[in-house]
Simulated scan of single mutants.
Amino acid sequence: MANSNEELSYAAALDTAEQLLGVRLEQFLEPGIGEPANGEDFKRLATVHTFGDAWSRTDILDTRTRALVSVAIAATSGTLEPLRGQLRIALNNGVTAAEIVEVFIHIEAYAGAARAFEGYQIAVQVFEEKAEGEST
C-alpha cells in the first residue's frame, strides 16, 4: 500500500502524462487478466519515474527538446508503440512534423534505413491522426 507522499507523486505523474499526451493514462494502467498483483507496482513505479521524475526536469532540457530526444530513442530502439506516444507528446508540445522528419533523416544516417523507415511509418500514422483531429 502506498503512503500519502507516494500517492501524491503518482497523481502528479498522471497529471503530467495527461498534459504531455492529451489523454489520461489510467485506462492503460488497469490490471490485465491474469496479471499478478505486483504488476500494479511496476506500472506505478514506471509512471512516477517517467512522468514524475524525468519529464519534469525542464530546467536544463525543456519539454520540447525532451520530446525530440524521446522520439529518437523510441525509434532507434524499435519500440514502435511507445514511439507512437512519444510522437504525440512531441506534436502536443510544439514540435513540428517537419522537425520530426529531420529526426528520422538523422536516425537513418546513424541507426540505419530499415529502423528509420519502420519508425517513420508510425510517424506518418500519427501525422494523419493529428491532421484528422485538427480538421474536426
Rank of each mutant, 00 (worst) to 15 (best):
M1K: 13
A2G: 04
N3Q: 02
E6A: 11
S9F: 06
L14T: 05
D15Q: 13
A17R: 00
E18H: 13
E18G: 06
E18P: 01
Q19R: 15
Q19G: 10
L20Q: 09
L20I: 07
G22P: 01
V23T: 13
R24F: 04
R24Y: 05
R24C: 11
R24W: 02
L25M: 14
L25H: 00
F28L: 11
F28Y: 15
E30G: 12
E30M: 15
P31D: 12
G32P: 07
I33C: 06
G34N: 06
G34A: 04
P36V: 04
A37I: 10
N38L: 14
N38V: 12
G39A: 02
E40L: 11
E40A: 14
D41L: 15
F42E: 06
F42G: 06
K43C: 02
R44F: 07
L45G: 08
A46T: 12
A46M: 10
T47W: 01
T47M: 04
V48P: 00
V48W: 01
V48L: 01
V48N: 00
V48K: 07
D53E: 15
A54R: 12
W55R: 05
W55Q: 02
S56C: 05
T58C: 00
T58I: 11
D59S: 11
L61M: 14
L61W: 09
L61D: 06
L61G: 06
D62Y: 03
D62T: 10
R64I: 10
A67V: 04
S70H: 01
V71P: 01
I73V: 15
A75I: 09
A75D: 04
S77Y: 10
S77I: 14
T79R: 15
T79P: 00
L80Y: 09
L80V: 09
G85C: 08
A90F: 02
L91Y: 03
L91N: 08
N92A: 09
N92V: 09
N93V: 04
E99A: 07
I100F: 03
V101H: 12
V101R: 15
V101K: 15
E102G: 05
V103G: 05
F104H: 05
F104A: 07
H106R: 12
A109C: 08
Y110N: 13
Y110D: 09
A113Q: 12
R115N: 09
R115H: 08
A116N: 08
F117Q: 13
E118M: 11
E118H: 09
G119L: 06
Y120P: 03
Q121R: 14
Q121Y: 04
Q121G: 11
I122C: 06
V124D: 00
V126A: 02
V126M: 05
F127H: 05
E128C: 07
K130H: 13
K130D: 11
K130I: 10
A131T: 10
A131W: 02
E132T: 12
E132A: 13
E132W: 08
S135G: 01
T136P: 07
